[in-house]
Design a protein around this nucleic acid. Structure first.
Length: 1147
RNA sequence: GGUCGUGUAGCUCAGUUGGUUAGAGCGCGUCGCUGAUAACGACGAGGUCCCAAGUUCGAAUCUUGGCACGACCA
C-alpha cells in the first residue's frame, strides 16, 4: 500500500486486495505500538468486564474448533472494551492429566503403569512437564494470527506452584469440612493405566464392539433337572458370580428342551426367540411371575468360592436366616429387551450389581451378609483365587472361560452381541472394566440444591442448556470421584499417620515444611542440584512431594506420609477462578476484583467438564458466603456447537477428496458431500494456518460470527469461508476503495476537522463544507438514518450476546450502503465542480459512515477495520486516535433515525426493482431509454414523497418520465383481501365466508366507498359486516398485455413504445460504452481528457451522435467529438448492425 | 433405553407474540452494467416448511404421537 502520491489524503487502495497481506501488516502495527496494552490502560479504573479463559492443553496441535472458541472469546471482550469496560484477559494453560502422560508414554514407547515405574517416576514427570509446551509456539501463533487479544505473557499454568497451592487450599477446605472422603466404589477402571476415569472421560471412549453373548445354565438346587437360563456379555465375570436377578413383574416360562432332556426357566416373551436361535423346539410347560422365583438357590457355573462358602447362611434383620449368596433375587433393571430376562450378578464388576449386593447386605444383621467377591487384581488379571485363569487379562480370558463352560455343559448358547462399550479415550485399544476401588470423593451431592440454585441464575446461551443438558446433569449429581492413581497431576495434599491412620490436609508447601519434624525436602534439593534447569514448580509434584514426611501429631513416634494419589485435572481447571491468582496465598485483590466472570465460552463438550467443575468448586467453596451472590463463578456462558468437517466422499470406493469434485479421481464413481466429525486421522479439514494464508483471519472470524448462531454445529468448510468474503468484507472494501479513489481524484480531504480524535459525528461536523445532516439531501439523510438504526440494533443484540443477529444487521447495512447509496450517488461524486454542495455532502456522508461502520465492525473483523481506520485518519497524524480499537463503540443517535424515510426508501427501492423486473420481462435492456413508467400504488400515503424522487427512478430505470396514477383501471385490476389479523378475532367462524365475500366483491367499489365515507359494508350470507380502511388490504393485479410488474405495494407499467429519438439515445449510450472500453484498453487514466473521432457510414449513428454530442462528450471526458475519417490509430467496432471506427487522442 | 437438540429451496441457515404471496446468502439460469472493473448489479427458476392427528375462523409457528439425524448419558 505504498503511497504513490503523498499529497493525497488517503493511500490509494490496491486493485487486487489481499486481506492476508493487510492482516500481517496490522499485526505488526499492533505489536509495534502495543495497541492491546493501550486498549487496557485506557480503561483502567473503569467498571470491569470479567472474562475467564478456559485453559486449553498445549500438548496437541490446535485445530479449527479452537479457532471458533478463540474467536468468540475475543469478540465480546473487544466489544465490551470499546463500550468502556476494563477487561483484562489472562491466558491460561491446562497442563496436568492423563492426556499428557499418554503422550509421553507414546514417545517412550511404553504403555502400562509398571513400565512407567520401571522408567522412573522422576524422569517421567520431568518429561511430562516439558511435553506440555511442545506445541506452545503453534498455539501462540494461532492466538496471535486470529487476532485473539489475550495476555499470554502472564498466563496461568496449572502446574505452577502457586496454582497447585491454591488448589490445595480449596481441598484442605473441603477436607476440614468433611467434604473430602475416601470411598469404596465401582468405577470405570483403566487396568493397563491403573487408574479410574471420570464419567466425562468414559463418555468419550464408547465404541461399538462385538462381545460374546453367553446363555448359561444355573441349575436350581431345589428343582430336579431344571436350570435358570442366565445371560451375560462378560463371561469373565462368571467366576465372580454371587446372584442371579430376575424381575418380579415379568412372566417366566419353564420350558422343556427335548434334545438335552432338561428344563429351563427364562422370560416367557423370549421363548420363541431363543428357540429360533437354538433351532430347537422348546415346549412351554408352565409359567410363573418372577417373584415366585426369588429366593431359590442355584449352583453357579464355577465353584472357586461356592465350594467353600456355598452353604453359608446369615441372620436376617427381619428374623430367620437365608443363604448369603447364589440365589435368585429381584431387580427392576432386568428387562426382556435382550438375553433371557435373567441376569448374572457379579457385584465387583458392575455398578448396579454392586448396589444390589449392598442392598442384600443390608437385609442381614451386621457382619452376616454377603461379602464382595473379587478375584481380579487392579492390573485386570485374574488372581490365584481363580487358578484356572490366573494371570490372564480378563478380556482375553473370555474365550477360555467359554470353553470351560462348554466342557462342564453349563453353556447353553453362544452368540455374538453388538453394543457400545467404553474404551480408554487415550488408548483406543484398551477396554475399560468396572472395578471396585478405593477412591477419594468430593461430597458434591450435599450441595446439589445449591448448585441447582446457582445454575438458575446463569445466563446460558442457548438457554435450553440451563434446564436441559446442564440442569439434568446436576439433578443426577453423584459425588465427584477426585483421585487418580497416576503421576502427573496436582498431588492430593493429604498426609496419613503411619500409626493411627488419621489424616491432615495441607494448603501450601510452606506450611508443610514448617511442620515439626518435616523432612525429605533434600530429595528435591538434590535433583535441582543435579539439574539446575529443573523448574522450581516441580517440587510440589510427585515424586518430590511424596518424599516429604513429618512427625505425626496423632501418635508419638509416628510419621505422616502423603497419600499416593494425584487429582482429576478437571478439578485444576475448575479452580481457575481463584487459582489463576494463587488465591488466597496471594492475589487477593485480583481475585476479589475479578470474581465472578461476566463471560465465558467453550464448546458443548465442556458441560460436564469445565462448566461443571467451575460451578461445583465455586458453589462448595463460596456458596455459603452471604457476600457472594449467585451466579458464580460465571454469569453468561455461550455454549458453542461442535465443529464439523466437510468432506467429499466417493459413494463407490469411499475415497476421500479434499475439494469438491463430481467424479471420483480413483474410480470415477459419484462423489457426494458429507458433513462429519473432524478427525485427525481422516485429515478431513484444512489447518487453520492455510485458511489464514489464503483468506485471512477476518474472513474466518466473520464466517463464524455471521453465518449461524454460535451454538449450532458449525461446518468448517473452506468453500463457505471463502464465499462469505464477497458478501461482506469485499463489499465493504469496495465501498471504501471507491471512496478513496474519488476523494483522491477530487482532492477531498477531511483534514479540516478540528480535534479529529475518534471521528465522532460532532468532530466530523467541524469539517469544511460539512453541513448538518438535516440540511443534506434525502439519500444522505436516509443513509445516516440507516446507520444509526444499525448501531441501535447491533448494540442491543451484542448486549444480549447475540452476535449472529448483530452481524446480520451489519451485513444488511453494508449491502444498502453499496447497492443503494453508492450506486445512486455515483454521479454526485463525478460532478465537475469540486466545491459543489451536493458533492461535498456525499463525501462527508460517506466519510462519516465509513468511519463509524469501521468502528462498529472492529470487534468482529479487527484487521480490516484497523486498516480502513488507519487510512481514513491518515491526514490527521497524531490528531486522530491511533487505532480503531482504542475508540469507543459508536452508539446510535436516535434523533437521526427517520422511520418514515426508511419506509419510503424501501418502497422506492421496491418500485425500482419492479421497474427492472418489467424491463426484463419485456426484454428491454436498461441502456435503451424509454419514454416513461406509470406507477400504481396500493396505498397513496407515500406518493407525494415518491414524486419528489422521480429523478432517482428515472436514472435507475433509464426512463424519461415517471407518473403516478390512482385511476389505473386500464393497467390493473384491484383485488381486495381481508386483514385476517383484525377481522379474524371479530368474525370468528365466519372468516372463511368473509374471505369468499371479499373475493366476490367489487374491489374498486369498496375502495371508493372507503375513501369517501371511511367505511364500507360487505354482505356475507345476509349478515352485513361493516369494514373500515384497516380491515381491507389491497392487492393490485397487472392486466394482461402490458409490460408490467407487480409487487406487494405497487404495480409498475412501462411505456414500451420506442421513438426514433429514443432509439438514437440508446445508440449513444452504446457509443459511450464502446469508448469507455477503448479508453480502458488504452490504459488511460480516469482523469485524462481526450479527442474522440468516430467514423461511420451509418446514418442513424451519425445522427445519434450529433444529437447527443454533449452527453457523449461529458460521459467519456472528451474535449472534442469529431465525426469523420479516423487516422491510423483506430479500432473497428459494432453497435448492433452498425459498423464504426474509433480513434482516441489524449489532449 | 434415557435426556437434550435439530428437521424450512441444490447447500448453509433466518423466520419475532399463530394471520393467508414463507425469506436471505451461496450455487444455478437469464440478462444487464462497464469511471468500484480480475469488480458490480438486476431478474428468474427452485419449497407437500419431516409425517400424522389435534387445538383454532386460520398452523412452518401451539399440543400430542411417530420418523430421521446429531450430541450427551446409560
Amino acid at each position: 500500500m505504498a503511497a504513490k502520491d503523498d499529497d493525497s489524503s488517503f493511500d490509494p487502495c490496491e486493485n487486487n486486495v489481499s486481506f492476508p497481506k493487510i492482516e500481517e501488516s496490522i499485526l505488526e502495527f499492533w505489536k509495534q505500538n502495543d495497541i492491546y496494552q493501550q486498549s487496557l490502560d485506557q480503561r483502567a479504573g473503569q467498571e470491569r468486564y470479567v472474562f475467564y479463559e478456559g485453559p486449553p492443553t498445549a500438548n496437541g496441535k490446535p485445530h479449527p474448533g479452537h479457532c471458533l472458541t478463540r474467536a468468540i472469546k475475543d469478540l465480546f471482550p473487544r466489544y465490551k472494551t470499546m463500550r468502556g469496560y476494563f477487561c483484562e484477559r489472562k491466558a491460561g494453560w491446562d497442563t496436568h492429566g492423563l492426556p499428557v502422560e499418554v503422550e509421553v508414554c507414546k514417545e517412550l514407547g511404553i504403555h502400562a503403569k509398571e513400565e512407567i515405574e520401571n522408567f522412573g517416576v522422576e524422569p517421567f514427570i520431568q518429561k511430562c512437564q516439558a511435553s506440555v509446551w511442545q506445541y506452545m509456539q503453534e498455539w501462540e501463533q494461532l492466538t496471535e494470527r486470529l487476532g485473539f487479544w489475550v495476555n499470554l505473557d502472564q498466563a496461568y499454568v496449572t502446574y505452577h506452584q502457586s496454582y497447585v497451592e491454591s488448589v490445595w487450599w480449596s481441598l484442605k477446605n473441603f477436607f476440614d469440612q468433611g467434604l473430602l472422603y475416601k470411598g469404596h466404589k465401582i468405577i470405570w477402571w483403566w487396568a493397563q493405566g491403573g487408574t479410574a476415569l471420570s464419567s466425562g472421560e468414559v463418555g468419550q471412549g464408547y465404541k461399538t464392539v462385538k462381545d460374546p453373548s453367553v446363555y448359561v445354565k444355573f441349575p436350581l438346587l431345589e428343582k430336579e433337572n431344571t436350570s435358570l437360563l442366565v445371560w451375560t456379555t462378560t463371561p469373565w465375570t462368571l467366576p465372580s458370580n454371587q446372584f442371579a436377578a430376575v424381575n418380579e413383574k415379568i412372566d417366566y416360562a419353564t420350558v422343556y428342551d427335548p434334545q438335552e432332556d432338561h428344563y429351563l426357566i427364562f422370560a416367557a416373551d423370549l421363548v420363541e426367540k431363543i428357540a429360533t436361535k437354538m433351532k430347537r423346539e422348546l415346549e412351554v410347560k408352565s409359567t410363573c411371575k418372577g417373584s415366585e422365583l426369588v429366593g431359590q438357590r442355584y449352583q453357579p457355573p464355577f465353584d472357586y468360592f461356592y465350594k467353600t462358602d456355598g452353604d453359608q447362611t446369615g441372620t436376617l434383620k427381619s428374623g430367620g436366616t437365608e443363604s448369603r449368596a447364589w440365589r435368585i433375587t429381584s431387580a427392576d433393571f432386568v428387562t426382556t429387551d435382550s438375553g433371557t430376562g435373567a441376569v448374572h450378578e457379579a457385584p465387583a464388576f458392575g455398578e448396579v450389581d454392586y448396589e444390589l449386593l449392598v442392598s442384600e447386605r443390608e437385609r442381614f444383621i451386621e457382619g452376616e451378609g454377603p461379602n464382595l467377591i473379587c478375584p481380579v487384581g487392579p492390573n485386570g488379571k485374574f488372581t490365584a483365587e481363580v487358578p484356572d485363569f490366573e494371570g490372564q487379562w480378563v478380556k482375553d480370558a473370555d474365550k477360555a472361560i467359554t470353553q470351560k463352560l462348554k466342557e462342564t455343559k453349563a453353556l447353553y448358547l453362544l452368540d455374538q452381541y453388538e453394543h457400545e462399550y467404553p474404551f480408554c479415550w487415550r488408548a483406543d485399544d484398551d477396554p475399560l472394566i468396572q472395578y471396585p476401588r478405593e477412591s477419594w470423593f468430593v461430597k458434591t451431592t450435599d450441595f446439589k440444591d445449591k448448585m441447582l440454585a446457582n445454575n438458575q441464575e446463569i445466563n446460558w446461551l442457548p438457554d435450553h442448556i440451563k434446564n436441559g443438558r446442564f440442569g439434568n446433569f446436576l439433578e443426577s449429581n453423584v459425588d465427584w470421584s477426585l483421585s487418580r492413581e497416576r503421576y502427573w497431576g496436582t498431588p492430593l495434599p493429604i498426609w496419613v499417620c503411619s500409626e493411627t491412620g488419621k489424616m491432615e490436609a495441607m494448603d501450601s508447601y510452606d506450611s508443610l515444611i514448617a511442620k515439626p519434624g518435616a523432612t525429605g525436602m533434600e530429595v528435591w534439593a538434590a535433583a535441582k542440584e543435579a539439574n539446575p534447569e529443573l523448574v522450581e514448580d516441580l517440587k510440589v509434584h510427585k515424586p518430590y512431594i511424596d518424599a516429604i514426611t513429618y512427625d505425626s501429631p496423632f501418635a508419638a513416634g509416628a510419621t505422616m506420609n502423603r497419600v499416593p494419589e494425584v487429582i482429576d485435572c478437571w478439578y485444576d481447571s475448575g479452580a481457575m477462578p481463584f487459582a489463576q491468582w494463587g488465591y488466597p496465598h496471594q492475589g487477593e485483590k485480583e481475585f476479589k476484583e475479578q470474581f465472578p466472570a461476566n463471560f465465558i465460552s467453550e464448546a458443548l463438550d465442556q458441560t460436564r467438564g469445565w462448566f461443571y467443575s467451575q460451578l461445583a468448586i465455586s458453589t462448595l467453596l463460596f456458596g455459603d458466603d452471604p457476600d457472594i451472590k449467585f451466579p458464580h463463578p460465571f454469569e453468561n456462558c455461550i455454549v458453542l456447537g461442535l465443529m464439523l468437517a466437510e468432506g467429499y466422499v466417493c459413494a463407490k470406493c469411499s475415497h476421500r477428496h479434499a475439494d469438491q469434485v463430481k467424479k471420483c479421481t480413483e474410480c470415477g464413481g459419484k462423489v457426494s458431500r458429507k458433513t462429519e466429525k473432524m478427525s485427525k486421522r481422516l485429515r478431513n479439514y484444512r489447518a487453520p494456518n492455510e485458511i489464514f494464508d489464503q483468506h485471512g483471519a477476518d474472513a474466518l472470524r466473520w464466517y463464524f460470527f455471521a453465518n449461524q448462531p454460535p451454538w449450532t454445529s458449525i461446518i468448517y468448510s473452506e468453500r463457505a469461508i471463502k464465499e462469505s468474503i464477497p458478501e461482506f468484507l469485499l463489499r465493504l472494501w469496495n465501498v471504501y476503495s471507491f471512496f478513496v479513489l474519488y476523494a483522491n481524484i477530487d482532492g477531498f480531504s477531511p483534514s479540516s476537522i478540528s480535534a479529529a480524535g475518534q471521528l465522532n459525528p460532532e468532530a466530523i461536523s467541524t469539517g469544511t463544507g460539512c453541513r448538518p445532516v438535516s440540511e443534506r439531501g434525502e439519500l444522505d439523510r436516509w443513509l445516516i438514518s440507516e446507520l444509526n438504526q444499525t448501531l441501535k440494533v447491533v448494540t442491543e443484540r451484542m448486549d444480549q450476546y447475540d452476535n449472529y443477529a448483530a452481524c446480520t444487521k451489519l451485513s444488511g447495512f453494508v449491502d444498502s450502503l453499496s447497492n443503494w447509496y453508492v450506486r445512486r450517488s455515483r454521479d454526485r461524486f463525478w460532478a465537475e465542480d469540486k466545491q459543489d454542495v451536493d458533492k461535498l455532502d456525499a463525501y462527508w456522508t460517506l466519510f462519516e459512515t465509513l468511519a463509524t461502520i469501521c468502528k462498529a465492525i472492529a470487534p468482529f473483523t479487527p484487521f480490516i477495520s484497523e486498516s480502513i481506520w488507519k487510512n481514513l485518519t491518515k491526514s490527521f497524524g497524531a490528531g486522530a486516535t491511533q487505532s480503531v480499537h482504542l475508540c469507543d463503540y459508536p452508539m446510535a443517535n436516535e434523533g437521526l433515525i427517520d422511520e418514515t424515510l426508511s419506509r419510503q426508501m424501501s418502497l422506492l427501492r421496491e418500485i425500482a426493482s419492479l421497474g427492472l423486473s418489467a424491463r426484463m420481462n419485456a426484454k428491454l435492456k436498461v441502456r435503451q431509454p424509454l419514454s416513461g413508467v406509470t406507477v400504481v400504488l396500493n396505498n397513496q400515503t407515500d406518493q407525494a414523497w415518491l414524486e419528489t424522487h422521480d429523478d432517482l427512478l428515472k436514472t435507475e430505470l433509464n426512463v424519461r418520465a415517471v407518473t403516478y396514477t390512482t385511476d389505473a383501471g386500464e393497467y390493473v385490476s384491484y383485488q381486495i383481501v381481508p386483514n385476517f389479523k383484525l377481522l379474524g378475532p371479530r368474525v370468528g367462524k365466519l372468516m372463511p365466508k368473509v374471505k369468499g365475500a371479499f373475493a366476490a366483491a367489487d374491489g374498486k367499489a369498496i375502495l371508493e366507498s372507503l375513501s369517501q365515507t371511511d367505511k364500507a359494508v360487505l354482505d356475507v350470507d345476509g349478515t352485513e359486516i361493516e369494514l373500515t380502511e384497516d380491515d381491507v388490504e389491497v392487492r393490485l393485479q397487472a392486466n394482461e398485455g402490458w409490460a408490467a410488474a407487480q409487487g406487494s405495494q405497487a404495480v409498475i407499467v412501462l411505456s414500451t413504445e420506442l421513438t426514433p429519438e429514443l432509439i438514437r439515445a440508446g445508440l449513444t449510450r452504446d457509443m459511450v460504452r464502446l469508448v469507455q472500453d477503448y479508453r480502458k484498453e488504452l490504459d488511460l487514466r480516469r482523469t485524462d481528457r481526450i479527442r474522440l473521432t468516430i467514423e461511420t457510414a451509418a446514418e442513424e449513428l451519425t445522427q445519434a451522435i450529433s444529437e447527443n454530442q454533449d452527453y457523449l462528450a461529458g460521459e467519456v471526458l472528451a474535449a472534442e467529438v469529431e465525426l469523420g475519417a479516423v487516422g491510423a490509430q483506430s479500432v473497428s467496432r459494432e453497435i448492433g448492425e452498425y459498423a464504426l471506427k474509433l480513434s482516441i487522442e489524449v489532449v
